[in-house]
Nucleic acid binder design. Sequence first.
DNA 1: CAATTTTGGAACATCAGTGTTCCATCATGG
DNA 2: CCATGATGGAACACTGATGTTCCAAAATTG
Lengths: 188, 188
Amino acid sequence: MDTAAPTGTRARTRRAILDAAVSVLAKNPAASLADIAAAAGVGRTTIHRYFPERSDLLAAIGAHLLELIDVATTRARLDDGTAAEALERVCQEYFELGEALQFAFENPQTQSVDWETETDADRALARLVERGHAEGTIDPDLPPAWVAEALWALLYTAWQHTRHNDVPKHASLTLCLRTLRKVIAPGG
Amino acid sequence: MDTAAPTGTRARTRRAILDAAVSVLAKNPAASLADIAAAAGVGRTTIHRYFPERSDLLAAIGAHLLELIDVATTRARLDDGTAAEALERVCQEYFELGEALQFAFENPQTQSVDWETETDADRALARLVERGHAEGTIDPDLPPAWVAEALWALLYTAWQHTRHNDVPKHASLTLCLRTLRKVIAPGG
DNA sequence: CAATTTTGGAACATCAGTGTTCCATCATGG
DNA sequence: CCATGATGGAACACTGATGTTCCAAAATTG
């Protein structure tokens, strides 16, 4: 893991490529490396210099995404307030991932990441839901895995809603939060 | 439109190819025609005989899917009972689409169908939600488009849940319906 | 059974994306 | 300002998918 920051020119172009790749592949999972290079304002050769094979790029994106999710999860401060409140914060933080979110949904099958493998964020989320069950702020009939999956699905829905109906982002987020609140509410 | 039934050998192999294509592409959107041919138990040449180009096959799948959705929508009898009840029936009917559902979600970008273009089913669903608003059985704060998108997202979630956590289908459907009911419930 | 249709497979040309190499050019920082 | 490193572009070989053609075998139909 050379997560260590080369903190120079290299680091910046690497990021540019990574960001462009997420952005382009989010819209078209079948995009070619040439497309990504163009979007990054970089020569195709340069991409191969940083990521020898396409799969290397995909893997790097995967790692990058997991990191973004981790950061967002931390920022949501899962331990503050009721579990229901924390879950809403998670929703807001994840919503900010934007294109990264789109990418994750449009490229599920790619071996870029083992979405199957439980990450720290997954486990933290599961624990949060269990806390909600105990507290009585989250419907105990909904298993943690279901809540997590529904959360992602709602986030995706929110972005779709913004895209297709040119609704302002904040409006979609509001709908998303409102819907989430109703989903997890106990009783019913 | 030769939707007219050739009702012979042709029709059957055509269906076999279409079904296999949906099944294979649902799992791997990048699958080759050779893969599809193998899954259909048919020579690759035969596929080209029915669908000259890949795009023709994709288009046919799109039309097929829209038809399936239409049939399912009709079966849900949108005009019977309260709008909320009808919407739950829609959910159940759509759930039965199974692999077709997966396909639609895994291949959103393909030009196989204009998912953008409103179909009859879309419009019927929108009207149903509006009826629910008027009746007071569906939360008036949720726009029809949002309800429709959330419905699809929940259905996708249900199938994912079954896939990843090897939960029996009926259990996922139950969760899905329960969640939907809470989402559309007025007030909150 | 005979005629017709449908099929599978082989062979082929084509094409787009990938990965590699090489070199001239540009930027950076020491 | 010069040396080192980073970049872009051209050229190339390679691969896998696509689409076409042709023919012999199998199935359907009357």
